[in-house]
Design a protein around this nucleic acid. Structure first.
Lengths: 136, 136
DNA sequence: TTGCAAATGCAACACTGTTGCAAATATTGG
DNA sequence: CCAATATTTGCAACAGTGTTGCATTTGCAA
């Protein structure tokens, strides 16, 4: 089913164990992963190789690179990203879970002249049903 | 015309040469400045003190802290933008600048049964006019 | 003026990411 | 299947950014 090596071949890069494992981890992840996250998840991988694998996945279009609020790069599989674009998420501040909402994304706001819109994201957070039940 | 020391006094923090110079630099800057920018601009300031001065300005509401595309923190004076609740912000992914939009915040979305809403934030990002002009 | 909490300067450290280079390896063509 | 070759890997060392601990200095108020 999920043939990670095929994705790599289709992207025109060599299929190596490192790339397979990293891409698989990105595809399985619910949220974008930092280098540190991946290092913890793949303990026997070399630090530098991990950086280079991530860069190569970004270069061939299989992964996306973005900066989080702490200034750390986070990577996500671009397939996953497409799947989760176009709708709103709810993040539970208790358990950290992410849930997809039916709500459609808000309309792009009017920007001052010269500004270029990249994306509009809505960050809805609070307590999910399960956590709310546990702490009434 | 408000003198920089007065802004500091009004914010309830001690008036020190470091804070006065850094805040003046931020007020005079057209774009958010990084720690490195400020260090170059104020050569006889201590590196660590500069970090702490910036943090204190953020803590007392006189400056805003954001991350640029390279993952570096950039700081801007917020003297003119005191009210940051109740309206939407635009974040420039190039320079890290934060701009206030006229748009009103989106209505809270409908949540699944049992979910408790904490807060809704809208993250509108892209390229600001100045950065867009630099990279056409 | 004096006392005290806050701010500063310095050294050392931690985290994130990069570069150079030799050894190992995936792919291509015989 | 095997050899040739361009990539990739692993290691060491380095660079940039931000933080912590601690002794000293300084702003501010009693």
């Amino acid at each position: 089913m999920s043939a990670t090596p095929d994705l790599l071949r289709a992207a025109g890069v060599k299929v190596t164990p490192g790339r397979v494992r990293v891409l698989a981890a990105l595809l399985a992840a619910a949220q974008p992963l930092s280098h540190a996250d991946l290092e913890a998840q793949l303990p026997d991988a070399d630090r530098v190789t991990l950086y280079r694998v991530l860069d190569s996945l970004v270069a061939c279009g299989l992964a996306l690179k973005a900066v989080d609020a702490r200034g750390v790069f986070r990577f996500s599989a671009s397939a996953t990203q497409r799947e989760h674009g176009g709708h709103v998420h709810f993040r539970c501040t208790d358990c950290g879970g992410v849930f997809c909402l039916k709500t459609s994304p808000p309309p792009p706001p009017k920007l001052p002249r010269g500004f270029r819109l990249g994306a509009v994201e809505m960050d809805v957070h609070g307590t999910c049903a399960q956590c709310a039940r546990r702490t009434p």
